[in-house]
Design a protein around this nucleic acid. Structure first.
Lengths: 227, 227
DNA sequence: TAGATTGTTAATCGATTAACAATC
DNA sequence: TAGATTGTTAATCGATTAACAATC
């Protein structure tokens, strides 16, 4: 194992678009490493990540210099460098609000365990759901009532909103009131939050509409605007 | 009801970024309309959509001219104009592969019904899951085995991949072989597809990593790259 | 050395923003 | 008319791309 020092740069100089691709590279490197691949070129890594090699090299150049000209990247070293730069070392606590099918899927999602996360709390309004245990990675958690949200959220850095749309803003408000500043929302609705709180929203309906548009466009269906 | 003619423009002249925001505007307009609001200004609509008013007006200007200076937009007219431009009139068929918790959540998602979609097929490998009926909007569908994928996919324009990551590429290949050209994937893995096939990937792990990075950045935790 | 591949440069491209003329 | 708000312009900003010098 090499003892190279990675000459990294400050986080806030790195473009947003680059930051949003780093987890993808990290994931691909993880799989390469698991497959016993020791070295990878920017062309290979880029293709497996779904980007161009120029973009990949440009992205990495914002963090520092990790490769060897004429050779490529040491998979393990590059993985460690990106992971360290992102700060994956100590896991963040995640609280999930809403344990319908989606919430369950998220709670049992293996990605939480692997990538520096730990589910620390599950909250639901339904008395039939409260009290159930859900296996989250290694440990099991009990679903707790909304009354416990504040207490549970105290040990969480990230909140996940998996409630029906009608309950999303309320869940959001409660999480924010409990001091959670970073939220991942699956609700089909724009969430109003105070300054300093960041929401990433995943709206399946919107994603489908975009895909549908492209599909119709590809099919050359006119679909003109009528009177 | 007005009989205004919307002077729209060709679809392929409209920027990608704009197209990807149109479904959001459409959704907000839908809610405004449901709330009995007849007129809305760009400032109001923009705020509810989470964008600036300048961006909203610029976006709409790519499709045509829908407002009235000094007044704002007629909610119903603007909604209809965007819906028509996107081509929401005739619903697209959706086939969902993988009916774990996530697949179930998607199958019962009301967004499918509302926004010009119709779930036409459910596919799973698990013999225990095959044969079950799932309520998708108005109608109930029976989960069918992978052997039926080709037949089911024939009436679908969009494929949704909700399998575990390890089965995602196989599901993708089968859908593509069946002629489905537009895919929405929830698998934490890059899917290789032939040219002409479009994949939108939603990776919860990646989303969380981005959020986690911002959280750690906001907390001013150094997390420097080590040797 | 010869071949390969990185890291960087500079040009291009697209998206955002602020300001305002047009006009209801 | 006076006030309000759109649609558009032009400037700015950020991201992508191609090409190549550096260097293993």
């Amino acid at each position: 194992m090499s003892l190279r020092i990675a000459p990294t740069r400050a986080r806030d100089e790195v473009p947003t678009a680059t930051v949003e691709r780093l987890p993808v590279y990290l994931h691909v490197l993880d799989r390469l490493r698991a497959g016993g691949i020791a070295t990878v070129s920017s062309a290979e890594l880029a293709e497996r990540s779904g980007v161009t090699s120029a973009k990949l090299r440009k992205d990495l150049s914002h963090l520092g210099s990790f490769g060897t000209r004429g050779v490529g990247y040491d998979v393990d070293f590059l993985h460690r460098s990106i992971a360290d730069w992102l700060g994956v070392h100590e896991p963040l606590g995640v609280v999930i609000v809403g344990l319908g099918n989606l919430g369950h899927a998220l709670a049992t999602y293996r990605g939480f365990a692997g990538g520096g996360f730990r589910v620390v709390g599950l909250i639901d309004v339904d008395p039939d759901v409260v009290g159930r245990t859900v296996a989250c990675g290694d440990e099991s958690l009990t679903v707790r009532p909304v009354a416990d949200l504040r207490e549970v959220a105290a040990s969480a850095q990230i909140g996940v909103i998996a409630t029906p749309g009608s309950a999303a803003q309320d869940a959001c408000d409660r999480l924010v009131a409990a001091g959670v500043t970073h939220l991942l929302s699956f609700a089909p609705r724009f969430l109003a939050v105070p300054p300093g709180v960041e929401v990433r929203a995943i709206d399946v309906g919107v994603e489908l509409q975009i895909l549908a548009f492209r599909q119709r466009q590809a099919a050359h269906e006119p679909g003109a605007v009528s009177a």
